[in-house]
Simulated scan of single mutants.
Amino acid sequence: MGMSVTISAASAQDAEHILKLQYLCYQGEAELCGDYTIEPLTQPLADLTAELERGHALVARLGDEIVASVRGEADETGTVRITRLIVHPRLRRHGLGGRLLDAIEEHFATGGAGVAKRFRLLTGHRGDGNLRLYRGRGYETVGVERVAPGRTLLTLEKAA
């Protein structure tokens, strides 16, 4: 490709591009669970924009194109909920998801926020690649919730 991927804070101007990437990235999850009405595929732009204003989001760019993103939000107890770690399908399995996960954790642990006591995220039980990434970074399953027939969400957590 010839270009480096850069990671930076997302802005409100990135919201539409993030939403389009989110829609593309969650097609596989929807297919796995047989449900195309999952929240990442139906989220309105206004909701995503509000998330960006409330928490912290990062984007990875290849040139001018947003090719990956992650969001995080800390609560009053120091729990940082990490959401929507997405990587464009053509760039998966090159370490970009791990780089974004490390960067959002760093932001909340020591960077701009410095409030994290623990990190928590949700993932589908059939997402082997996601589970490998999270477990490889020290996350452990702390909860299991069946949300629909054939669809189970795992809650994973690790100390900051």
Rank of each mutant, 00 (worst) to 15 (best):
T141G: 01
L91K: 05
E16T: 14
V87L: 02
Y139G: 00
G34N: 10
A15P: 08
A74T: 15
A12H: 11
D47V: 13
R61S: 09
L91T: 01
L52I: 14
L131C: 11
D35W: 00
R137L: 04
R120E: 15
C25Y: 08
G2K: 14
S8M: 09
A109I: 03
S8V: 09
E16G: 08
R120H: 14
L85E: 04
A148V: 06
D64W: 08
A10V: 02
A109R: 15
T79S: 08
A148E: 09
A68D: 00
R135N: 03
E157R: 11
G124L: 07
T37F: 01
T79A: 08
E31A: 13
T110D: 01
I7K: 05
R71W: 05
L19K: 15
L154F: 14
L122F: 10
R126T: 09
I104H: 00
S69C: 10
S4N: 15
E73N: 02
Q22E: 13
R93Q: 14
Y26M: 04
A159T: 14
R120F: 12
I86M: 12
H94V: 01
R132E: 14
E31Q: 15
G72H: 04
V142C: 09
E157K: 06
T141C: 07
T123V: 11
R81V: 07
L19P: 01
G55C: 06
G63W: 11
H88P: 01
T155N: 03
H56W: 07
A68C: 01
G136R: 15
T6H: 10
A9V: 11
L24H: 11
L48W: 05
M1P: 07
A103F: 00
T141L: 04
E53Q: 15
S8R: 15
E53Y: 06
E157V: 07
D64C: 03
I86E: 01
P149G: 07
T155Q: 12
Y26V: 05
L121K: 09
G111C: 04
V142K: 06
E51T: 05
G124P: 02
S11P: 02
I7C: 02
L122D: 05
R151H: 15
L32D: 12
L121G: 02
L85I: 15
A159F: 07
D64Y: 08
P89N: 14
Q13M: 07
R54H: 10
K117D: 00
R126W: 02
K158S: 03
C25K: 09
L133F: 08
L48Q: 08
R99G: 01
G114V: 09
A116P: 04
E51L: 02
G143D: 08
C33M: 06
A30V: 05
G127E: 13
V142G: 02
L19T: 11
V70Q: 00
C33A: 05
T152L: 02
R93T: 14
V144R: 14
H125T: 08
A116F: 03
G150P: 03
L121S: 04
D75S: 12
T155W: 06
K20E: 13
